[in-house]
Simulated assay, not measured.
Amino acid sequence: MRQQGISRRCLLGFATVAGSSLALAGCSNFDFLGDRDNDVREFLSSANGLTYRMQRLLLGNTWLAPEYTEADIRQAQRPNGTTAVGTEEYTRLANDGFSAYRLTVGGLVERPASFSLAELRNMPSRTQITRHDCVEGWSTIAKWAGVPLSAVLDQVRPRPDSRYVVFHCFDNVQSDGAEVQFYGSIDLVDARHPQTILAYTMNDAPLPVANGAPLRVRVERQLGYKMSKFIKSIELVSSLAEIQGGHGGYWEDQGYDWYAGI
């Protein structure tokens, strides 16, 4: 059964990985993809939309990514993206074990709220052993535990016009020549998927800073760059047009696909 699931992931993820590989190859031959008006980029974006629709059609909204056993965890979880946050705010929280941390959730919701890490830990939890697939070509298997994002959404009650969940994070990145805090997004379908969790432990230990403490999102049906780390707040929106460059996330504004299904 597992082999069949992996095969379907590879088949359906091919178009997304192929398109992303061009933009992420690090080769100067593809620098033109950073131009938001470029015809090739627009073509890749349309292919990404097709991949999104086809995966939803063929697999549905509740298909589960493969899960593994503890015997399959053979190496430490390799960090992806930023591995340290040097801001005064984050350093203060980390030095105190994130006891003063609060996750704020707002935007298009009926009941905006904020949650301490202890409150999130007291909510229903889910543990899953899954494979992290990076667009750079590596993968590792790790055990994650956290609160299902759907449980948090149930607390704040998304409004009918909400379509996307945006993650605002503590780490700073450069975007259009300015320093901004990292941002990413998924749609409500993936947000409510049973395997989408706000992880606070990894391999039975508190989530390390290098892997995104105090919270990172796990979106097991997508590539690793969609799994925002160091989450500061969550915002529900009806459109991604007003989120920085308008493509739904920091990496997407640099040319990555918004939907990275595998």
Rank of each mutant, 00 (worst) to 15 (best):
R126H: 09
H247N: 08
L153A: 05
E70W: 00
L12S: 05
R126E: 04
R2G: 12
M227W: 14
G137E: 10
R157Q: 14
T91Y: 05
W144S: 06
D72K: 06
A23R: 06
G13M: 02
N38Y: 00
A23C: 08
I73P: 13
G255P: 00
V219E: 05
I6Q: 12
E235P: 00
A241W: 00
D96G: 12
Q174D: 12
P148S: 02
A15Y: 00
V152S: 06
L59Q: 09
D133Q: 13
V109K: 05
L149E: 02
L117P: 03
S175C: 04
A142I: 11
R221K: 07
L50W: 02
A191C: 08
V105C: 09
I186D: 03
A25M: 12
S238R: 09
R131L: 12
T62N: 12
R36Q: 04
T69N: 07
I197D: 04
S239D: 13
Y256M: 05
L57S: 13
F30D: 02
R41H: 04
D37W: 01
P208M: 09
N61I: 08
H132D: 12
T201A: 10
A47I: 02
F182A: 12
V209F: 02
E235C: 05
A142Y: 05
Q55E: 14
F167M: 13
D176M: 06
P160T: 04
F43A: 08
F98W: 07
T130I: 13
G106I: 01
S99R: 15
Q55T: 14
I197E: 06
L240V: 00
A191W: 01
T140Q: 11
L108G: 02
A47G: 00
E70Q: 12
L108C: 04
I231Q: 07
R92C: 01
Q195M: 09
C134Q: 08
N203Y: 08
L236Y: 02
T82G: 04
G60Q: 12
L240T: 01
N95V: 04
G49K: 07
S238L: 01
P206I: 06
A205H: 15
P160D: 02
S162A: 15
S228C: 07
K143Y: 04
G106H: 06
R111N: 10
H168A: 11
S114C: 07
L108A: 10
L24V: 03
C10E: 15
S233G: 02
G224C: 09
A205C: 13
I129F: 02
V147H: 05
A260P: 00
F14E: 14
P208G: 11
A84R: 15
R78M: 15
V209N: 08
Y250C: 01
M1Y: 07
W63N: 11
G246N: 01
A113F: 07
P124F: 03
